[in-house]
Computed example of a mutant assay.
Amino acid sequence: MSTPQDLASTPPATAADPAPADGAASATLGGEQRRSVEQVALLLFIVVPFVALVAAVPLAWGWGVSWLDIALLVAFYFLGCHGITIGFHRYFTHGAFKAKRPMRVALAIAGSMAVEGPLVRWVADHRKHHRHSDAEGDPHSPWRYGETLPALLKGLWWAHMAWMFDTEQTPQQKYAPDLIKDPITRRISRQFVLWTVVSLALPPLIGGLATWSWQGAASAFFWGSLVRVALLHHVTWSINSICHATGKQPFKSRDRSGNVWWLAVLSCGESWHNLHHADPTCARHGVDRWQVDSSARLIRWFEKAGWVDDVRWPKRSRIDAKRNDPHTEPGENREEAATAHAA
């Protein structure tokens, strides 16, 4: 059976993506063609939280925000964020470590509570992104329309969120067959709507019980559910857009991935994106001094607790071998790195 590492690091294919086996895609929510009802639902899940995010500033300025609401926002934000970064991304997509069954379930559920789509769909899209990174076939490259300023602006919009409305979707059977065959991941992926409801309902439930009031529940829903989801969405999408359009490139990669330091804390270490594309299966993305990577820290704690093992920690010799020559301009070694990647 194909491993996450194999699927994420295979050189770009030249043939068209084959159709999935009968019933495989439908078993994980969503086929290869996005229906109109799916596009409407997606639009609502993007627009409603975003409106709340925009309204958050004047509301906080005029009426203030309680410590309970802030605590709920922060707690559920980092629960979902680490569910995506550690679970959906580093574990399920790239196989950066092995997890015991309870941890596997917990990571799948935590990632689903980020409300970024079903597990199998998310992983399939991301594996395809790595296979065709910033080239034809990449689902969300900001360089899709060219390198002029108008083309890049259009491309940034596409990479940030417009790509999600494309009617054609990534074949799940091709890019995530291992997850489709696993009853645990297949079941949790199909339960995406359930975990979305849980994610949105828990903050107002806690807020209402803590304050014993409907007003407390409504306030918690606004901050802990809507604002939190919108903030997490746009931080995650910024890795697709901003981190592929700008940032430092200390490592050799076959694409335009860059490190964007000011996104590091909110992205739980994902914005050290250049190293990730240079070494996709590495469990730590921020490998240089002072590069904050909370996801890697949690993986270390999980390893010490015995919940995960066989972690692919960065080796100094391997990291040094992937560094760009400091006397060259960023991107000069991209062709060389692409050859090495394909080999």
Rank of each mutant, 00 (worst) to 15 (best):
T196D: 13
W157L: 15
Q169E: 05
A124P: 04
A114E: 04
V115L: 12
H160G: 09
G146R: 09
L152E: 13
E136W: 14
M103T: 14
M161T: 14
P171K: 00
T148D: 08
F192T: 12
L107N: 03
R190T: 10
E168A: 15
R101P: 14
F165W: 05
A99E: 05
G111Y: 04
G137C: 06
P204M: 01
R144N: 12
R190P: 14
H130S: 07
E136V: 15
S189D: 00
Q172C: 10
Q191R: 13
G155L: 02
H126N: 06
D178N: 01
P204S: 02
P203E: 03
R186S: 04
R144A: 12
L119G: 05
I206A: 03
R127C: 02
A99W: 02
P177R: 01
K174S: 11
T167M: 14
A201E: 08
Y175T: 01
I180Q: 00
S112A: 05
A159I: 00
W157S: 15
A108K: 04
Q173T: 10
Q172S: 08
E116T: 14
S189E: 01
A114P: 10
T185G: 01
D125L: 05
H140Y: 09
A162E: 10
A151K: 08
E147N: 15
V197W: 05
E168W: 15
